[in-house]
């Protein structure tokens, strides 16, 4: 994409009369996308600047909703808590999912029997619904009926069994690891794509120079894969700050125990739709959504300007 855009910029024939057939080609996509994606997003942003009176009237509120969300003694701890948990969730993915994805990709790249079988199996959890995955893992980890305790006992680690999903200090990492289990195939495939894209001559040349495989990996392959590392990171970031289904399925919208699994998605759901004996507040919900929007935007911009630009310089 970058290459093509550069091409366009430098081409003197860029400017041309807008032909009608282009309208025909672009209109369906642009209209559908604008109406059902861009408009709702902008409308949500707008809603966050209004509030609803008890008489169900909508009045302009300026940034009052944001101030309340960030400073109110009841609401702010939920927001900051959700944000903190979301970062923990993201960091676990970065530290576990992506390195293992890279490891698996590099194992797959070397020639060997059954490579495509491994690839198929490793990617498989990705095509399952989060609802199903959440439920399956809940069964496995259940302290009364689950099999995780007997597995641990079988390998002699029985005493380490804990009701992980119920303990505030373990619940979030446990759910994050389940999410890693599901999504490991994506970084694996992307890294795999990058690895097979590296010209063989480079590697052969360096092997002749006497480099070990490990050196080849870290000194030659990895730097060449940095753009993919960037893409994987930003995809992980966007995905994690948009996560909801898994926690909703496993812990409900209250994201217990003691809000320890509460992330932005569940906070949004609770404020927008309400919960037990409580109605939702659409304006506050829109405010939370707008904060998520800003956080994701910030991450994407950071990636585009700080990472992508710099990495390009290393490219060949």
């Amino acid at each position: 994409m970058c290459n093509r855009r550069d091409f366009l910029v430098f081409n003197p024939r860029t400017t041309r009369k807008f032909p009608f057939f282009l309208v025909v080609f672009l209109a369906p996509a642009v209209i559908c996308y604008t109406l059902f994606m861009i408009y709702p997003l902008i409308e949500s942003l707008r809603m966050s600047f209004f509030s609803t009176t008890p008489e169900n009237k909508t009045v302009f509120a300026g940034i009052a909703n944001y101030v309340k969300l960030l400073t109110d003694s009841d609401l702010a701890p939920r927001f900051w808590g959700a944000l903190r948990n979301n970062f923990v969730f993201f960091i676990i993915h970065m530290l576990v999912q992506n390195p293992i994805g890279l490891l698996l990709a590099s194992l797959l790249v070397s020639k060997g029997k059954g490579r495509s079988i491994y690839r198929t199996l490793l990617y498989m959890p990705n095509v399952l619904s989060v609802v199903i995955i959440g439920f399956i893992w809940q069964l496995i980890l259940n302290p009364l009926w689950g099999v995780s305790e007997s597995i641990l006992r079988f390998v002699g680690l029985g005493k380490f069994f804990q009701p992980w999903l119920g303990l505030p200090e373990y619940a979030l990492p446990t759910i994050a690891l389940i999410s890693v289990w599901q999504f490991i195939g994506i970084p694996m495939l992307l890294f795999y794509t990058a690895l097979i894209g590296i010209p063989k001559e480079f590697i052969e040349a360096s092997l002749v120079d006497g480099c070990t495989e490990r050196q080849v990996f870290w000194r030659i392959k990895f730097p060449l894969m940095l753009p993919t590392v960037g893409i994987v990171s930003i995809l992980t970031f966007v995905g994690n700050f948009n996560a909801f289904d898994l926690i909703y399925t496993m812990k409900g919208a209250s994201a217990g125990p003691a809000y320890s699994t509460d992330i932005m998605g569940t906070l949004f759901y609770r404020t927008f739709f309400g919960q037990q004996l409580q109605l939702g507040n659409p304006n506050m919900g829109a405010t939370v959504a707008s904060m998520m929007f800003l956080i994701i935007l910030f991450g994407v911009l950071l990636y585009t300007f700080a990472f992508q630009r710099r990495v390009k310089n290393y490219q060949l």
Binding site: P40, F272, I296
Partner: peptide
Amino acid sequence: MIPIRLGTASL
């Protein structure tokens, strides 16, 4: 990059 979910309210 921006999930459509954030526009749920107005959708």
